[in-house]
Amino acid sequence: MQYKDPRLLVQPSPLLKQQMTTHQTMRDLLFALLPVTFAGIWLFGFSALLVILASILGAVATEWLFSPAEQRAARLVDGSGVLTGLLLGLTLPPALPLWMAFLGGVVSVGIGKLIWGGLGQNLFNPALVGRAFLLATFPNAMTTWSTQASGEGFFQWYPSNFALPFMQPHYDAVSTATPLGLMKFEQQSTALPDLVLGNTAGCIGETSGLLLLAGGVFLVLRRDIDWRIPAGVLLSAAIFSGVLYAIDTSHYPDPLFTLFSGGLLLAAFYMATDPVTSPLTPRGAWIFAVGIGLLVVLIRIFGGFPEGVMYAILLMNAATPLIDRYTQPRVFGKE
């Protein structure tokens, strides 16, 4: 029964309801990522937009195809498929063939999410599962970084984008190294203003540190994400690399370089904070975040890859159930 003007509302608890819904959170995340996406498209040209669209298309198509017919509409509307596709697209190099980006979207949603039972059931961050799959499958294409189009070449595209499905891309554009690659293999640092403004080679969405930070702060203020996780990741990475920098300034990168290079900011604000794959308790969130920060610096400096953010998060995702178990708050009145 419904009354139009309830003077006295009698209903069972909970009486105070949280306004936040899945749709709302997903929409906030998409809004927060828009500036970064536009910056990526501006910096790398039209190709970046195509790569992002291909990965979103892969993610959404998989979500649609493998959902029960009666749930399809609801699952597409909640925006999680689009978000996964967008996050994946932002972590791909701009000259990646479109079919690979599409495949990444399919794997992200198919193997990263739906196979576990859909939204809220997955153990690992779906976008990063897709990226890890692509990196292991196409190591060359995933580490060929093109120079930026930066404005004047906005309507140019990389010919490698249009490689036929299953065929190798051919790179015409001059390829270059990311700041992290330069650091690792040539011991060459990149100027901080370039890192902050995004004037470097790299993945589509990881270069412009300032916009990532702005979007992240927006999310923290909106309380869409747990502030402890980005804070913990960034602090622990900065402190750990600061200690190493203090030991030997010529060998190790300075903390600011660590923070603004590679995908650390993107991952700290948008991927590590995925509520499904991060611990529930505040104490657990700190452990999780500090673990990611330490692993990132460890892999970057002592590991074989120039960038370690993806593996750091996937490893800590695997530890999340354990962390949750050990940080479970004591039930009141029990020992």
Binding site: P97, I111, A136, T137, F138, L164, F166, M167, Q168
Partner: peptide, 19 residues
């Protein structure tokens, strides 16, 4: 396929077997 085929490296590695 033609010589242009891009091999899926992961498939001949252990993870490819599991997947």
């Amino acid at each position: 396929f033609s010589d242009d085929f891009e091999p899926w490296v992961i498939m001949i590695l252990p993870p490819g077997g599991f997947i």
